[in-house]
Design a protein around this nucleic acid. Structure first.
Length: 929
RNA sequence: GGGCGGGUAGCUCAGCGGCAGAGCGUCGGCCUUACAAGCCGAUGGUCGCAGGUUCGAUCCCUGUCCCGCCCA
C-alpha cells in the first residue's frame, strides 16, 4: 500500500505498464480445459481489416466488447473474446495496388503469384498495427487465439464450406446480370453497391421505323447503352402507339432490326414519351423484360468499361466518352430529340465510389432461400435475440426478401474458389483437394483452377466456428460454440451478421449466438458521418495521447491548407471552441467511459471531445478521492463482506453501494452500458465524493474514535468495491489504484479477476436512505439561502432547525456535526419545535418538513428576501392549486389506485405546510432591514 | 415507391401512463489543507402540431408536418 500519488491523474504513466502486466499474467486467456466447469461467455470480435488502422468505430466496439468481456470474467465466466483480422479482399488489394502504382508498376506487370506474395509481405509489415492499437484501448481479448481469415486453418474451413454447399446444391454457377465495378474489374454483390441520387439528364432520340413510315422516340439517361438495345417497348393499351404493334425499327449505327414489343410491366405510359428502349444486358428491369419476351442479350462493354467490338465505330471508347459520342452521332443523323434535366439514381461501388455497370456475367452464387429460412426462424423463436429489438424488424424484412448471394470476385487477393475447370469435357470439379490431378468426370488432366476468389464476407460468415478449429471437432469448438453474444455495428447486420446466422445454423446445427447486440455509428458532433472528404475524422489515439488541433487536422484533411482544415474541423466539433490549442492526453479510460455513456439504441453517436474531457475529469476525481482516502486508510480492515455500520452516513453509503452494484449489473446484462456507466458516475461523484467523503472529514478529526474506525473500514470497503464496479469501464486507473488500497485477504493478481459486486455487497437500508435524504435536503436548503444572499463561503452563520416531529429532531440532533460541517454554520445548529424561539433577522426556508433558519441579520436586504420568498410561495401555490383540482374530481378518487390518491393527499398536506412556513418567513423578512 | 427510426432544456441525449431528468453550456459566489481537471448555488422545457383513449398522456392510439437511415 502506497500513498505517494501524483496530484493529478496521468494516464500515460499507468496504461502501458498495466497492459503488459495483464498479458504477462494471462489475465485474458480463456480455457478449454475439460475440468474447467465455469460457465462460458463467448464473444467473437468483428475482425478489423488487416491493413487498416484504428478509427472511432473500432474504438467504440472495442470499448463495448471489452466492458462485456471484463464484466463476464469478473462474474466468474470462462470468457473467450475471440480476436483476429480480416483479409478484406478489395480494400487490401487496392492498398497494395496503389503502393505498386507509386513504384511505377502494377499487379498486371507483376503477375498473380508475385502480386499475392507482395500482399503477404505487406500484411506482415502492416498487419499487426491494428492489433497493437487495440491494446492501447485496453482490449482484453485472448490474443493467444488470434486468427486471420487467410490462415491455413481458416482457409481450409472456407474451402470445406464451399465444397459442402456446392455438393448440397446451395452453391451454383450461373450467367446473369450482375453489378460490375469497372475500376476494380470485379463483380460486386448487390449489398456492396450504394445507390446515390444525382442530377442528370434525360436524353431523347428517335428510332426510325423499318418500313420508313415514321419513327418512335425513346428517352434514356445512358445513351451509350442503345448500342445494346434489342427492343423498344410500349404499353399495350397506349392508343398513341396502337399502329406500331408488331413493327420493327432500324438501329442507326449497327446493322440490326429491333422489334417493338408491348409490355405493361416495364412501361409507364405517363413517363417520358411512353416508349422505352430495352437493353437486357445492361439494365435490371430490361433484363427481366428480355426474359419475358425472349430477347437477345447483347453486352457492349469490356471489363474495363470501354465499348467492345459490338459497338462498331464506338469500340474502344470509355463508356463516358461513348455517351458523348453516341449523342453527337445521333444528332448528326438528325435523330436527337433534345434533353431534359432529370433526377436519377447512380449505383456506385461502396469501395472505390466508381459508377458500377449492370453486366451479363458468369458467376458463383449461394442459394440463400433455404439458408435464410432457419435463420429467420431462430430470431422469430427467440433462440437468438436481437438487441435493441427494433432491429429484428429490419432483419426479418431483409431475410424474407433475400436475394441469392454472388460470392465470386475477379480479384487476386482472397480465397481462391476450389473449383477446377476441365478443358476436355468442360465439367467443373469442386474439391477441397488443393491440386486435383484429373477431372472427376472424364479423367482429363487438363484442368485449371477457377481464376476467381471468394467474397471476403464468405469467410467472415464462418468466423464463429472457423476460429475454433472447424471442420475439425476440437475441444474449443465444443466449449465455445455457440457464442453468447455477437456485438457489432448495425451497418453490417446484412453483410455479416445475417450471413453468420445462415452459415452457423447450416454447418453447426444451431445459431452462432444467443444475442446479437447492435450499436450505432460514430459521427462528428454535428451528426455528420466521419470522412476524409469532410475533414472531420478524429484518430482515437490523438484523444488518448493528446494532440494539437494542427496535428489533428493534418490527418483529418491531409494536404489541405491548415487554416481551411482547422475551420472545417472546428465546425464539425463546436465544443472544441472551448478547448484551447488541442486535445490533452485524456487517456484510454476517459475515451472508453465516454463511448460507454452513449445509448446503444441511438443510431448515431455524435462524438463530443468536450465529453471526453469531462470524463478525463471523472478519472481525476477517482484518482483524488482515492488519494484522499488513502491518508485515512492505514490499518483498515477489508473483509469479504461489508463491515458493520452504525452511523447514518456509513449505513447510507453502503446501501447506495448495494443499489449501484445491482443497477450496474442490470445495465450491463441488458446491454444498457449507458445506464450502468452513468449510474456509476453519479454514485462515485455525486454520492461518494460530494457527500460521503465530505461527511467523513469531521469524523476523521479524531482518528482513534470508534466512529472514525468504523468510518475508515466502511470507506475502505466501499472504495474497493467501487473500483471493482468501475473496472470494466475504466480498467487502467482502477487497476492502478486497487493495488494501492487495502483489499480482502489473498486478492487475485489483477482487478480484472476480482469479483464484480452484486446487491449482496452491502445491506440495502431504506431507513438510512430516507434519513439521509432529509439531512441532504436541509443542508441543501441552508446552502441555498447562503448562496442566494451571497454569504461568503468561508463565513460561519448561526443555523436554527425547527420541527414539531420529535423523531426528526432526534435525527437532526444526531447529525448536527454533519449539518454544521456541510452548511458551515456557527456551531451546532439549534434544534427545537416550531414555537421555539427563533433568532432575530433569520432567513427561513422549508425543507423536508423542517424550518431552516439562517441568521443573516445585517447581511441581507429584507425586501430582496421578501421577493425571494414571494416567488417560492407562488410556486407552492401553483402546485397546491393543481393538486386540489385533481383531488376535487370525483373520478380521480374513484378510479385512480388508492396509493396514488393517498400520495396526492400527502403531497397536498406537505405543500400547505410549506406555504404556511413561507408566509411566516415573509413576515419575519421585514426584520432583516 | 416500400420499410424502419427520430422530433424532450441553448447543445447532445436519457425517460415512455402518476411532481419532466443527465452531461455539457450559461449566470453568480469561492484557490474551504483529495481534486480549479475542483467546490457551492442558480438559470433554463406549451416534451413537433392537431385530435382521441384515460381519473390522469411527454409516454398509448389516429392523423399531420419536419428530419434521418435502409431497401427498390
Amino acid at each position: 500500500m502506497s500513498t505517494d500519488l501524483a496530484k493529478a491523474y496521468e494516464p500515460k504513466d499507468v496504461e502501458t505498464r498495466w497492459y503488459t502486466y495483464w498479458t504477462e499474467n494471462n489475465v485474458f486467456a480463456a480455457s478449454d480445459a475439460p475440468d474447467d466447469t465455469r460457465p462460458t461467455y463467448v464473444l467473437p470480435m468483428p475482425p478489423p481489416n488487416v491493413t487498416g488502422s484504428l478509427h472511432m468505430g473500432h474504438a467504440l466496439f472495442c470499448t463495448i466488447e471489452d466492458i462485456l468481456s471484463r464484466y463476464h470474467r469478473m462474474t466468474g465466466h470462462n470468457t473467450l473474446w475471440q480476436p483476429g483480422t480480416d483479409h478484406a479482399g478489395i480494400a487490401t488489394q487496392l492498398v497494395v495496388e496503389r503502393l505498386l502504382q507509386r513504384e511505377g508498376t502494377s499487379r498486371h506487370d507483376l503477375g498473380r503469384e508475385k502480386f499475392i506474395e507482395r500482399v503477404w509481405q505487406w500484411r506482415v509489415q502492416a498487419g499487426d498495427r491494428i492489433l497493437e492499437q487495440q491494446r492501447v484501448l485496453g482490449v482484453s481479448a485472448d490474443w493467444s487465439r488470434s486468427k486471420f481469415t487467410m490462415d491455413p486453418d481458416l482457409s481450409r474451413a472456407v474451402s470445406e464450406a464451399f465444397v459442402r454447399l456446392h455438393r448440397e446444391g446451395l452453391i451454383y454457377r450461373d450467367t446473369r446480370l450482375i453489378y460490375w465495378d469497372c475500376e476494380a474489374r470485379t463483380v460486386l454483390s448487390n449489398l456492396e453497391v450504394e445507390n446515390e441520387p444525382a442530377n442528370g439528364e434525360l436524353f431523347e432520340f428517335a428510332y426510325p421505323l423499318e418500313d420508313g413510315t415514321g419513327e418512335i422516340v425513346v428517352a434514356t439517361t445512358r445513351p451509350e447503352t442503345m448500342l445494346g438495345d434489342t427492343a423498344v417497348a410500349i404499353h399495350p393499351d397506349d392508343e398513341r402507339y396502337k399502329a406500331l404493334h408488331g413493327k420493327r425499327v432500324r438501329h442507326p449505327f449497327v446493322d440490326r432490326l429491333i422489334p417493338i414489343i408491348t409490355d405493361a410491366e416495364l412501361v409507364d405510359p405517363k413517363f417520358g414519351t411512353g416508349a422505352v428502349k430495352v437493353t437486357p444486358a445492361h439494365d435490371f428491369n430490361d433484363f427481366a423484360t428480355g426474359k419475358r419476351h425472349k430477347l437477345e442479350e447483347i453486352s457492349i462493354l469490356n471489363p474495363d468499361g470501354t465499348i467492345n467490338a459490338i459497338g462498331g465505330d464506338f469500340a474502344g471508347m470509355d463508356r463516358f466518352a461513348a455517351r458523348k459520342a453516341v449523342k453527337k452521332a445521333l444528332d448528326e443523323k438528325g435523330l436527337a430529340r433534345g434533353t431534359k434535366p432529370h433526377q436519377l439514381v447512380l449505383p456506385r461501388s461502396e469501395r472505390n465510389n466508381s459508377i458500377v455497370e449492370p453486366m451479363i456475367s458468369t458467376q458463383w452464387f449461394v442459394r440463400t432461400a433455404p439458408l435464410a429460412e432457419p435463420a429467420l426462424a431462430a430470431v422469430r423463436e427467440g433462440k437468438t435475440r436481437i438487441i435493441p429489438e427494433e432491429w429484428s424488424k429490419t432483419y426479418e424484412h431483409w431475410m424474407s426478401n433475400i436475394l441469392d448471394w454472388c460470392i465470386s470476385r475477379q480479384l487476386w487477393w482472397g480465397h481462391r474458389i476450389p473449383a477446377f475447370h476441365c478443358s476436355g469435357c468442360a465439367h467443373i470439379t469442386v474439391t477441397t483437394d488443393e491440386s486435383p490431378k484429373a477431372c472427376e468426370t472424364c479423367g482429363s488432366t487438363d484442368i485449371h483452377q477457377d481464376e476467381d476468389v471468394l467474397d471476403t464476407w464468405f469467410s467472415s460468415a464462418l468466423w464463429p466456428f472457423s476460429t475454433l478449429g472447424w471442420p475439425n471437432d476440437t475441444l474449443a469448438l465444443k466449449r465455445f460454440y455457440p457464442a453468447s453474444d455477437l456485438e457489432t455495428g448495425y451497418d453490417i447486420l446484412f453483410f455479416w451478421v445475417a450471413r453468420m446466422m445462415m452459415m452457423g445454423i447450416h454447418f453447426m446445427g444451431e445459431p452462432p449466438f444467443k444475442r446479437i447486440l447492435l450499436h450505432g455509428l460514430v459521427v462528428d458532433e454535428t451528426g455528420e458521418k466521419m470522412s476524409k472528404v469532410k475533414g472531420n475524422v478524429i484518430d482515437p489515439l490523438d484523444l488518448i495521447h493528446g494532440a494539437t488541433f494542427e496535428q489533428v487536422v493534418e490527418k483529418a484533411l491531409p494536404g489541405a491548407p491548415l487554416q481551411e482544415a482547422l475551420k472545417k474541423f472546428k465546425k464539425a466539433y463546436p465544443s472544441t471552441a472551448q478547448m484551447g490549442e488541442g486535445f490533452a492526453a485524456y487517456g484510454a479510460d476517459a475515451l472508453r467511459f465516454t463511448l460507454a455513456t452513449y445509448s446503444p439504441q441511438a443510431k448515431r453517436i455524435p462524438l463530443s471531445p468536450k465529453k471526453i474531457e469531462g470524463n478525463r475529469n471523472f478519472c481525476n476525481k477517482i484518482w483524488n478521492a482515492t488519494r484522499f482516502a488513502l491518508t485515512y486508510l492505514e490499518g483498515a480492515r477489508v473483509g469479504a463482506t461489508a463491515p458493520p455500520a452504525t452511523l447514518l452516513a456509513n449505513r447510507w453509503i453502503l446501501s447506495r453501494l448495494s443499489a449501484v452494484a445491482a443497477a450496474s449489473r442490470t445495465g450491463i446484462d441488458d446491454f444498457r452500458l449507458d445506464d450502468a456507466s452513468l449510474g456509476l458516475y453519479h454514485f462515485f461523484w455525486g454520492e461518494l465524493c460530494d457527500w460521503f467523503l465530505e461527511l467523513t472529514k469531521p469524523v476523521f478529526a479524531d482518528r482513534t474514535s470508534a466512529a472514525a474506525i468504523e468510518t475508515r473500514d466502511v470507506l475502505a470497503y466501499t472504495l474497493e468495491a467501487a473500483l471493482r464496479l468501475l473496472h470494466p469501464f475504466v480498467p487502467f486507473i482502477t487497476e492502478e489504484l486497487w493495488h494501492r488500497l487495502p483489499r480482502p485477504e489473498s486478492p487475485p493478481l489483477s482487478l480484472g479477476l476480482a469479483h464484480f459486486p452484486d446487491d449482496t455487497v452491502a445491506p440495502r437500508d431504506a431507513a438510512a436512505e430516507r434519513d439521509m435524504a432529509v439531512v441532504q435536503a436541509i443542508i441543501g436548503a441552508a446552502r441555498s439561502v447562503r448562496s442566494e444572499h451571497e454569504v461568503h463561503p468561508g463565513a460561519e452563520v448561526p443555523l436554527t432547525l425547527r420541527t414539531d416531529d420529535a423523531e426528526l429532531r432526534a435525527l437532526l440532533t444526531s447529525q448536527s456535526v454533519a449539518i454544521r460541517t456541510l452548511v458551515k454554520s456557527a456551531g451546532d445548529p439549534t434544534i427545537g419545535p416550531r414555537e421555539a424561539e427563533r433568532p432575530r433577522g433569520a432567513v427561513m426556508s422549508v425543507a423536508a418538513g423542517v424550518e431552516v433558519l439562517v441568521a443573516l441579520v445585517g447581511l441581507v436586504e429584507g425586501h430582496k428576501e421578501a421577493a425571494r420568498i414571494e416567488r417560492e410561495i407562488k410556486k407552492a401555490e401553483k402546485d397546491i392549486a393543481a393538486l386540489e383540482k385533481k383531488l376535487a374530481l370525483p373520478s380521480f378518487a374513484d378510479k385512480a389506485p388508492p396509493e396514488v390518491v393517498a400520495e396526492s393527499h400527502a403531497q397536498l398536506t406537505a405543500l400547505r405546510d410549506k406555504r404556511a412556513g413561507l408566509e411566516h418567513a415573509r413576515k419575519i423578512a421585514a426584520e432583516l432591514d
